[in-house]
């Protein structure tokens, strides 16, 4: 069994997970294409199929936000949350797509980019199967929580750290740290485990991958389900945390 090797890009003394970044950008490109198809013939009359899909997503996220908070406060967040749910969903799906590059990059290799190493193996990798991606998103969430809390309540926002008594400051601090941590690790764990299991199924003994067809199909279907659920969960929790921070009732 060949050991999975981490492909790194070096820039000065900084390192980047090349595979994760390439997949991140692939997912972004897919989202951009998807949205481009949706807004290509934008009309306020009868929408086309793709516009309908996009409008459905917008309505979905909008109702999510208006369920959790004042829609006036939630309106500027819509763009972020929409992008978030789309990005996490597309990222989760990318790891389920078989590698259709057929080692093409061995012939068009760019030394710096290590593309041949990135596009090897039976399937692509989800960006969300890397803790760096999920941690970035969780970091953005907690930054949004704190900054929107300050924006809507001023310095009074920090008051909730010492409620009901200053003793609770430690618990509140743990709460504050655990929020992004659970966000990051939940998504990462779900997707990473899903991909590991997919790889394990692919390694079933037999004539290449044929014995794994049935279990792989079942697991792929389940992974699509998990990917959708996790993107929903991430967005809902982000919305909930922000609404906690901006709500004026406590």
């Amino acid at each position: 069994m060949e050991k999975e090797e981490l492909v790194l890009w070096h820039l000065g003394n900084m390192t980047f997970h090349a595979k994760t970044l390439i997949m991140t950008w692939t997912a972004m490109a897919a989202i951009l294409l998807f949205c481009y198809l949706g807004v290509r013939h934008l009309t306020s009359g009868k929408p086309g199929k793709m516009q309908n899909v996009l409008e459905w997503i917008v309505d979905f996220v909008r109702s999510l936000v208006s369920d959790n908070m004042d829609s006036e406060k939630g309106r500027p967040l819509l763009g972020y949350l929409l992008t978030l749910i789309m990005f996490v969903f597309f990222s989760n799906m990318i790891g389920l797509i078989p590698n259709f590059t057929f080692n093409l990059f061995e012939h068009f290799d760019i030394e710096f980019a290590h593309l041949n190493k990135i596009f090897e193996g039976p399937s692509l990798q989800s960006p969300t199967a890397d803790i760096n991606t999920t941690a970035s998103l969780a970091l953005l969430t907690i930054i949004l929580v704190v900054s929107l809390g300050i924006k809507h309540k001023g310095l009074h926002y920090f008051h909730h750290f010492v409620e009901p008594s200053p003793v609770f400051v430690l618990i509140h601090a743990i709460d504050m740290i655990s929020k992004p941590m659970t966000l990051a690790f939940r998504l990462f764990g779900n997707i990473f485990a899903g991909e590991i299991l997919l790889k394990v199924i692919m390694m079933l003994p037999g004539i290449w991958v044929l014995p794994g067809v049935l279990p792989a199909t079942i697991w792929l279907a389940f992974s699509i389900f998990i990917g959708a659920i996790q993107s929903y969960v991430f967005t809902v929790l982000t919305t909930a945390y922000i609404s906690q921070a901006v709500s004026s009732d406590h």
Partner: peptide
Amino acid sequence: IQFDYTVVATVLSFLLLVWLLSKKAWGPL
């Protein structure tokens, strides 16, 4: 679980995506 500068790159990429989509897709939509 290995953290490195991928976090920074991802944050920047994601914010770029947010900006692009908000401007070109969600806003008009």
